[in-house]
């Protein structure tokens, strides 16, 4: 399979999944925008109406954190089960196994475009300005994508080895949600702790970087971002090689485990 064919196939599989999804729901593609809006709505009810927080800032802070995190968690969680779920196909053709998680990640990208557009509109509507700093979103998005792909590959292999990992990944996502500073500000911790969280948890760093760029017009720590990109990029390459060399083993596990 040539690279071009591989890329086309990922794109077609992702778009077909989206189309299948859209036909299943009465509201179809509207859900892409409705879902992030509902998240913000839920935050509004909980944090503004019930808990009485008067700060519009806090609502935007939550929305940015949560919507960025959901991209990661949903993509990785569903990509993890993708090879096993595709076993009907796995048993019939010898395709690169990375195709399955890649198609799921691609599907997530298409949805996330709508989510980010919605988020940007909400931010602007709440008085935040689109500044030149927003250009930093480009490398940030690229690194975020690499992190998602690397984790998706690892997850997909683990679930092939033992289905139990799917449970652990779901639990892991919950753990990450609470430790990545979505509902609290990493920067409100004392300097030492904040550094520890940002150093140990790349997701916390990415979420904070989005907020710095979009809410505070501040450039993120580019060296840190670059390090994360290189680290996860290397992991991604290793996983591609592993999945290529162990393709038939993964097929056997997906078919029989």
């Amino acid at each position: 399979m040539s690279l071009l064919q591989y890329v086309h196939l990922i794109d077609i599989m992702a778009r077909m999944n989206l189309r299948a999804d859209a036909t299943r729901f009465f509201l179809g593609y509207i859900w892409w925008i409705l879902e992030p809006l509902l998240w913000v709505g839920v935050f509004y009810v909980v944090f503004v109406t019930i808990m009485g927080s008067r700060e519009a800032d806090f609502l935007m802070f939550l929305a940015t954190g949560k919507l960025v995190f959901v991209w990661f968690s949903k993509s990785v969680a569903s990509a993890s089960s993708s090879i096993v779920n595709g076993k009907g196909l796995v048993g019939k053709i010898d395709v690169p196994k990375t195709l399955f998680p890649m198609a799921v990640v691609q599907e997530g990208i298409y949805k996330q475009i709508a989510v980010f557009a919605t988020l940007a509109i909400i931010l602007v509507a709440n008085g935040y300005a689109v500044t030149a700093t927003w250009w930093y979103l480009v490398p940030l998005l690229v690194v975020n994508y690499v992190v998602i792909v690397a984790c998706a590959f690892v997850g997909a292999c683990l679930v092939c080895l033992a289905r139990d990992f799917a449970q652990l990944i779901t639990l892991g996502m919950l753990f990450l949600m609470f430790t990545s500073g979505i509902f609290w500000d990493v920067r409100s911790l004392d300097a030492e702790k904040a550094k520890l969280v940002l150093d140990l948890n790349p997701i916390a760093f990415l979420i904070d970087a989005y907020r710095q760029i979009m809410m505070h017009a501040t450039a993120p720590d580019m060296l840190h971002l670059f390090t994360i990109g290189v680290g996860f990029g290397a992991l991604m390459c290793v996983m591609v090689l592993v999945m290529r060399h162990r393709s038939q083993y993964l097929a056997l596990r997906a078919l029989t485990a």
């Binding site: 077909m16 189309r19 299948a20 999804d21 019939k92």
Partner: peptide
């Protein structure tokens, strides 16, 4: 083989 991963909604 028959039914190469058909997606029923498509």
């Amino acid at each position: 083989t028959l039914g190469l991963g058909f997606k029923p909604d498509l």
